[in-house]
Design a protein around this nucleic acid. Sequence first.
RNA 1: GGAGAGAUGGCAGAGCGGUUGAAUGCACUGGUCUUGAAAACCAGCAUACGUUAAUAGCGUAUCCAGGGUUCGAAUCCCUGUCUCUCCGCCA
Length: 425
Amino acid sequence: MLDPQLLRNELTQTAEKLAQRGYQLDVQNWQQLEASRKAIQVETEQLQNQRTTISKSIGQAKAKGEDIQPLLSQVASIGDKLEQSKNQLKTILTEMEAVTLYTPNLADDSVPLGDDENDNVEVSTWGTPKTFDFEVKDHVQLGQNNQGLDAESAAGLSGSRFTLLTGEMAQMHRALSQFMLDKHTQQHGYKEYYVPYMVNAETMQGSGQLPKFADDAFITEDERYLIPTAEVPLTNLVADTILDEAELPIKMTAHTPCFRREAGSYGKDTKGMIRQHQFDKVEMVQIVHPEHSFAALEEMTGHAEAILQDLELPYRKLVLCTGDMGFSATKTYDLEVWVPAQHTYREISSCSNCTDFQARRMQARFRNADVKKPQLVHTLNGSGLAVGRTLIAVMENYQNDDGSITVPAVLKPYMNNKSKVNKAK
RNA sequence: GGAGAGAUGGCAGAGCGGUUGAAUGCACUGGUCUUGAAAACCAGCAUACGUUAAUAGCGUAUCCAGGGUUCGAAUCCCUGUCUCUCCGCCA
């Protein structure tokens, strides 16, 4: 949610900034709502004040044994008017809330303007894509060759966009998440969490997935949502709390499966395990003092980069343009890893500063020693990294002529010191 | 799944349907005292919204949430959520 003061006092500028993101705020409608809200709220509060005042004097009169009848008839006329006024106010506030819940965060001034992913700006690249002296296979072929990746069995069990991993592929998948968690907890200062994979609607609303993106999530019969990312449970851990300033920053990480309907992505990335209904991810979340959130974004993106560097996977870093950013973000870096078979970079991490947007929805605050008042925290989240896509990247970048895959050095301790897997039979 | 108990300010914990935003204690902040600290004593200390130039006043709301009764609800009634205890089942 945006600061309501922005919509009240800087409506035109705010609408312009929202338009950069492709969101059209109905300014006229909002102004009308705001005007009637003002009038009706004042009226309601006045009526309420009258009623309370008279009710109090009834109490006093009764205590003194005076006749309360005149007071009762005085208050009688207020009831209906108040009721009506209250209902009107409620209707307007509900309407206004609907607008604010559907309005995205504002982009930071440092974010490049643009319409879609074509306008994202490359910030840096790392590593050099390896040249192969044989014809590279994609991860699907590599997986099939070695019977470690089985889309057909998964489809039989669950349908499209699911993958089954077996043997050393499953082991490498596990090794990757272990490695990532160890790196973040031991070197980057994050605390490890094990979290629920199902959350309630309130939690989904807190981090911005609801109400606007209900179609993207799986919902259970008892109205719980399968988490689309560990960002949801982790970030909401501070919902409705007032933290001590000394507790900040809070740095959390968790390895979870992520569930996404992928509604509207029909035909996109149907081959292989690039885009799945279920995938594993190691997520980083930071809860920080508002002054430090942009520095924290740089730091957190660095933590994701460190994983790729340790795995020696070439990647590039992009800053997303205004039109391509997620709903809650004010600034986002994407990391894209080199995928040899596609001869291109593919997204493997996304790190965002959400400023106070999620914090306001969740009412996550800290007691500011300077101001002494509770103040909204800033929240950040980043993938560190998407495990399935990392597995793909390792398979393809570390493939050998015979179809085997060399184990990256940092993964060896997690794989019984094997140096190669999936030797073609 | 069955039976019972509960949910009040940062925490603990009072509260008869009437001037209760709410006793008291702890914590916290400022002060007195002290060479300094502790102790003691004094004072202050919720949040949100509205109005406003105002972080000044004034007003409104908030005692788990949502309904209801009433002139008036933290207090009474209904529904829901969560927590705890006991029983059953169970990885």
